Simulated assay, not measured.
Amino acid sequence: MSEGRRAAFFDVDETLITAKSMFLFLRHWLADNGDDGTVYRRQADALRATVGQGLPREVGNRAYYGNFAGARVSDVLAAGQAWYAGYRRRPDAFVTACVAALERHRAAGDEVVLVSGSFEACLAPIAEDLGAGLVLCSDPRTAPDGTYTGEVGTPMIGVAKAEAVTKTIAGLGVAASDCYAYGDHSSDLGMLGVVGHPVVVGEDTVLGDIACKQGWPVLPAAGGRRDDR
């Protein structure tokens, strides 16, 4: 066990950034490929319907990656960089209280880890910008020709997040009781429960009730700028 070392795990969508990266990136990707908004609305409505029908979030996550079947991985990654370069200029792009917490962890020398159901195209530029050393995310399958198959291995949601965080803590050789985790949704509860310092972001009712009972800190989800780069 490494004395004095800690890790801080951050959900991304509506925890570090104020938006749902997967939806915004899908709109960006489809627009770049000639969509006038019609295909995006249809696909977004279908994805939201899975939640409305009470299906597990993992179902919607798997369906999402079907939108990239046949696309070259390199093209999608490049599109992710372009999307984020525009997104980060929004005046409300970041959950300022949570980004400030991340920056404090970095200053303290903690390992900063992003944990998200999103994928590399969205998360790599965010991790680079915020200085996260590790990213735990969904893993869309790729074909030998360098394209996405439209399938995904493990959606990084719910139980998968808790398992990935637990495995990462062990791999880093740090104590779970010293680690932090930040999440905004009830699906983050498993991840929050495996560290010694869980922090709730925003006003999710389920997490809010548990935070009140357990004495967990709650950060506001107000959005703002990070800097002018």
Rank of each mutant, 00 (worst) to 15 (best):
M1A: 13
S2P: 00
E3A: 07
G4W: 04
R6F: 00
A8T: 08
F9S: 08
F10E: 04
D11M: 10
V12Y: 02
D13W: 03
E14I: 01
T15W: 04
T18N: 04
K20H: 05
L24G: 15
F25G: 06
L26C: 05
L26F: 02
L26H: 05
R27H: 09
H28T: 06
A31H: 10
N33R: 15
G34T: 11
G34C: 10
T38Q: 14
V39R: 15
V39E: 15
V39W: 00
L47T: 04
R48H: 10
A49K: 07
A49Y: 02
T50H: 11
T50R: 13
G52S: 09
P56K: 14
R57C: 02
R62M: 03
G66L: 07
G70A: 11
R72A: 12
D75I: 01
D75P: 00
Y84N: 06
Y84H: 07
Y84T: 05
Y84G: 03
G86I: 01
P91G: 12
P91I: 01
P91D: 13
A93L: 08
V95D: 03
A101L: 08
L102A: 11
E103L: 10
E103I: 01
R104Q: 14
R104P: 00
A108T: 12
D110C: 04
D110F: 01
V113I: 09
F119N: 11
F119T: 01
E120M: 04
A124T: 09
P125W: 03
D129K: 10
G131K: 08
L134Y: 06
V135A: 09
R141C: 07
T142L: 02
G146N: 05
T147I: 05
Y148C: 03
G153I: 06
M156D: 01
M156C: 12
I157H: 14
G158L: 10
V159N: 07
K161D: 09
K161H: 11
A162H: 02
E163P: 00
K167R: 14
K167A: 08
A170Y: 03
A170D: 12
S177H: 12
Y180N: 03
G183F: 09
V195L: 00
H197L: 13
V199L: 09
V200R: 10
V200T: 09
V201I: 15
V201M: 13
C212D: 14
Q214L: 03
Q214S: 12
G215K: 07
W216P: 04
P217A: 14
A222K: 13
D227I: 03
